[in-house]
């Protein structure tokens, strides 16, 4: 097989096998030789010449350290065969920057160190990365927990505030309830009194008597007494009477055989009305006179001169 430019290429093959072609021309010939059996055979025909030409330079033992360094280099890489591909052949240009006799052992040692240190560094870096990742995760968990704790604390504070407010409301409610209960009790008591008063006044056997007023009584004042024969109870309703001035009270007296007995004090409301229910020591039949006086608070031994109402029974 002959390619179109074989004759031209064949002329260049001797220079090609000697390495005496320029780079671009050598590349062109190499490409042709690879595809052309005839030219490849021509190139291989110079194999013996190229294999013997170096002998023309003579024979000289290289220093022993060259061999030691070479096999130390191989051993260093072989011991780290996993990183075999990393090791690259040295280039003369790079070596010229260092003394040649030291470069190879240094490179072998450095390769071993790099591989060893690389493994240690990689392992350490891996551990550091794992620890850093774990630390970051822990920090994130801690931040999350801190946020949860803060949220719980805020919730607890809110709950405490709500509880305190509820307790205050409860106390106020209790106070209001107590007041209401007292009011209710008072109302119930008042209602009971009113019921008793109404039932007593409405009873068929009850008789009433209008008490007479004196010149000390206000013109609009009036008083009526209700009682039942044979019973001790006495009900007194007063209208149009002013409240007693300070240090004085209205006092009810019953008289028996000219002996006046203080029965109780009568409280007049702001509306000028007073309702008084009292059980006398004896049935009302035993008394022959009733009167209401304006007395000093501490003088209950006998009625004063200031009689407001009076009546004979």
């Amino acid at each position: 097989m002959t390619l179109p430019n074989c004759d031209e290429i064949i002329e260049l093959i001797p220079a090609f096998v000697l390495g005496a072609l320029d780079a671009d021309e050598a590349a062109r010939v190499a490409a042709h030789v690879a595809a052309c059996p005839r030219c490849r055979a021509e190139a291989e025909s110079f194999r013996d010449v190229m294999g013997l030409l170096p002998y023309a330079a003579g024979s000289l033992d290289p220093p022993p350290h060259v061999k030691r360094q070479l096999f130390a280099r191989i051993a260093a890489v072989s011991e780290n065969s996993s990183t075999y591909a990393v090791a690259q052949p040295r280039r003369p240009a790079a070596r010229t920057s260092l003394p040649g006799r030291w470069f190879a052992p240094m490179l072998a040692i450095m390769l071993a160190l790099i591989v060893g240190l690389g493994a240690v560094t990689f392992e350490a870096r891996g551990r550091a990365d794992a620890m850093a990742a774990e630390l970051a995760t822990n920090r994130q968990i801690m931040r999350s927990m801190e946020a949860q704790i803060a949220e719980v604390r805020q919730t607890a504070q809110t709950a405490q505030m709500q509880l305190a407010a509820s307790q205050r409301e409860l106390n106020e409610t209790r106070i209001q309830l107590a007041a209401s209960q007292r009011e209710l009790q008072e109302i119930q008591a008042s209602s009971s009194t009113d019921e008793q008063l109404v039932s007593f006044i409405a009873a068929p056997q009850t008789v009433s008597q209008l008490l007479g007023t004196t010149e000390r009584a206000p013109e609009e004042a009036s008083a009526r007494m209700f009682m039942q024969p044979g019973h001790n109870r006495l009900v007194l309703l007063i209208y149009g009477l002013k409240s007693a001035e300070s240090g004085k009270v209205y006092r009810l007296w019953l008289a028996k055989e000219d002996q006046a007995i203080a029965i109780g004090t009568v409280t007049v409301g702001p509306d000028g009305v007073a309702e008084f229910v009292v059980d006398a020591p004896e049935p009302m039949d035993a008394y022959n006179q009733v009167m209401i006086t304006l007395d000093e608070v501490d003088t209950a031994a006998q009625p004063s001169e200031e009689v407001i109402f009076e009546a004979n029974l």
């Binding site: 191989i74 040295r90 040649g100």
Partner: peptide, 11 residues
Amino acid sequence: LAEDIVQETFW
């Protein structure tokens, strides 16, 4: 340089 060439060649 020759020593380096020897070592690099057999490498």
